[in-house]
Design a protein around this nucleic acid. Structure first.
Lengths: 137, 137
DNA sequence: TTGAATGCAAAAAATTTGCATATTG
DNA sequence: CAATATGCAAATTTTTTGCATTCAA
């Protein structure tokens, strides 16, 4: 991804092998917590990367819009590539299962808050909590 | 709220003064992190309550459906009374401002995922990230 | 009475930060 | 070269847990 290097360079940041591996890890995993990213990075054959570098790398990449994060469950920020397929997560409060639906399901909702508040919502990886068919109260 | 005592009792749990004060704190604050709840509880005139009790109390109340929580920002679970007015939070990634819109704005969205996945979404206090009018990219 | 809850204190997790050193551009 | 990142270790912050004691029902 020369593209990635370009994005970083454009902001005076640098593409280091660690950052490249973080992006590769996310490409491979889809979603992952900082800890999960570190594990995947450590499993890619190269030397392990300290968590502090993972955190700083994710922070840098997020500030440039390359990755973003959401909170799928209680205490766990999960990161993903911003370009990753748009979808909304349906998190069941009963069994904890996480289902996904295309982000397009929220189109009307997004348009509505844009019209009423001028707010541009990013429903990519939006986490919606509730109950799945089996746990429906 | 004798009602509260009843809910707890119905599950073999007890209504302690600490729990009552936690609920009062949330009633007063609307939303708050465990830390914020502790601060408010400590400011209500009574003796301070250790964080561990706050955590265990919120956990117990949440398991009974009295309170629920969401993640409005990066690392901070915010709790609120489940009966608290339904609204969706619009969290700006630019300036961090948090706006609110009635949960009814998501009616069509909720119906759609209910129809397609049988998922009963609870959009109360749903946190939608994006950019407010001023920070729109 | 009697099991659920509290209070402390200590243990775990999860993040962040300081700094000397290594690297990218 | 010069400024940005990394690695490590140490410091924070946040949340959880063990247990003797207290208290609600």
């Amino acid at each position: 991804m020369t593209d990635l290097a370009a994005v970083l360079r454009a902001h005076g940041r640098r593409l280091t092998p660690q950052r490249r591996r973080i992006v590769e890890a996310l490409t491979h995993l889809g979603h992952a917590t900082p800890d999960g990213v570190a594990a995947q990075v450590g499993a890619d054959g190269g030397p392990s990367v300290p968590l502090s570098t993972i955190y700083r790398g994710l922070e840098a990449l997020e500030s440039l819009g390359v990755v973003s994060h959401t909170h799928l469950d209680h205490r766990a920020p999960t990161y993903h590539l911003t370009g990753h397929a748009d979808h909304v997560h349906l998190v069941c409060r009963g069994c904890g299962t996480i289902d996904e639906v295309p982000a397009s399901a929220a189109t009307e909702f997004v348009a509505r808050i844009s019209a009423s508040r001028g707010f541009t919502a990013d429903v990519t990886h939006l986490a919606v909590h509730g109950w799945c068919a089996g746990c429906r109260p």
